[in-house]
Nucleic acid binder design. Structure first.
Ligand SMILES: [Mn+2]
Ligand SMILES: [Mn+2]
Ligand SMILES: [Mn+2]
Ligand SMILES: [Mn+2]
Lengths: 218, 218
DNA sequence: TAAAAAATTTAGATTAATCTAAAATTTGCT
DNA sequence: AGCAAATTTTAGATTAATCTAAATTTTTTA
């Protein structure tokens, strides 16, 4: 079955919301991320339910069916592969790729996306460290821990982020907190949760807010 | 002003129709290429006229305004650059690129398309020999002559085609009538307009229909 | 040059996606 | 438990793109 852009966006965002909270996704939550009104969401949920892409019970929120989940993962796969293309081949910065990928993720061609994946040499993650589902829809994510949960002395590689705003990404660039760098916890300030980290042989203080959004592979 | 996919497709196809016939484009002609009904076309022409993208007079057909033409050329630029990408980088065959390019041509990002052009090394033509407009909207086409208009002894390079169907493209592949090959007219059969050509040191007979659709740069 | 034919436009519906305002239901709190 | 607040759904419109059928205009042709 062929879905509209709109339907694909609903499925993708329900997937992300469910991934984050792991219970039924609420109408309001969907309205918020899709920048639309609750009434519109209700209408669409009825339609997606009709197509058996979501499990929907009035007033109880939704989850994706297996079919809905597969469709969502396929959109995410396309989004992330295109992001890799933009950064690796067209030299976009990692804070510049998202909007364009939002459009490219809806181009429908199995051949295109599989060829692109091969052209990019089967990348495991996108420029933000997020895992890329394989062509069979299998999405395996590495265990990542926010810096804010680490103890003094812990050490690992910067491997992901929780917040994807261009603001945050540019800040990380500027302070050298780049994906793949090794990072060690030097000190944690009780007063406000700031963390002193060792990065590129330099000590650097980061706020609790940053620490919560920076993910490490131990 | 941002246009819908549909509006972009109307403009692009009006451009192509006008390029081929060079007079006002008729409602029916548009309906035919867009696979829609004349009544729908009339509605859209009114809307495009409102936006000053076409010059429309009831019952008299349309032409593009300068703004409409620029928009059409920008869509064509994207279509052709993506086709080059698909063939050169993703190893699509030249008869496999059109449908996907029809989707990709609507992705809106100046940065994307200019970076892609650079990545592809500023190609002059697409895989079918059609010229690629530059970033300023300038489209310059080489003078090409169909084989059917040549005389015995004439010689040139295969440089374009008039018919873009996958059928025809696959036929050309099979018979070695590839873009860039040198071709010489050996004989013309008066009876049915067939032409004997020399291609890759081999003589080959082609029908008048093929000769009309194969374009040569002298 | 006046029918007839062809092309085009108008009128009136339909479908998808959206909205606001009002009604219904659930949740959370004394 | 029972009310108030928050959430969600329904009702009724709107906008874009499309369609069919009928009306209008242009073109062709005898
Ligand atoms: Mn993204
Ligand atoms: Mn990403
Ligand atoms: Mn094409
Ligand atoms: Mn082409």
């Amino acid at each position: 079955m062929n879905l509209s852009f709109t339907e694909e966006n609903y499925l993708k965002n329900i997937f992300h919301l469910n991934f984050n909270i792991d219970e039924n996704v609420s109408t309001n939550a969907i309205a918020e991320v899709l920048n639309t009104k609750a009434a519109s969401v209700t209408d669409m949920l009825k339609k997606l339910s009709e197509k058996e892409l979501v499990n929907y019970e009035k007033y109880q929120g939704v989850t994706l069916t297996e079919a809905g989940q597969q469709k969502a993962i396929s959109v995410i796969r396309k989004h992330r592969l295109w992001e890799v293309f933009l950064v690796e081949k067209l030299h976009f910065k990692w804070d510049e790729v998202h909007e364009v990928a939002e459009e490219l993720e809806h181009i429908n061609s199995e051949k295109l996306i599989n060829s692109l994946e091969e052209f990019l040499d089967f990348p495991k993650t996108d420029p933000h460290g997020d895992p890329i589902p394989d062509r069979y829809g299998v999405l395996k994510s590495q265990e990542l821990i926010p810096v804010s949960k680490l103890k003094i002395g812990d050490k690992g590689l910067i491997s992901g982020i929780r917040e994807h705003s261009a603001e945050f990404l540019k800040f990380l660039d500027k302070t050298g907190l780049i994906l793949g760098e090794s990072l060690k916890i030097i000190d944690i300030i009780n007063f406000d949760g700031s963390v002193m980290v060792l990065i590129k042989d330099r000590q650097q203080m980061i706020s609790r807010e940053v620490a919560k959004n920076l993910l490490i592979a131990l």
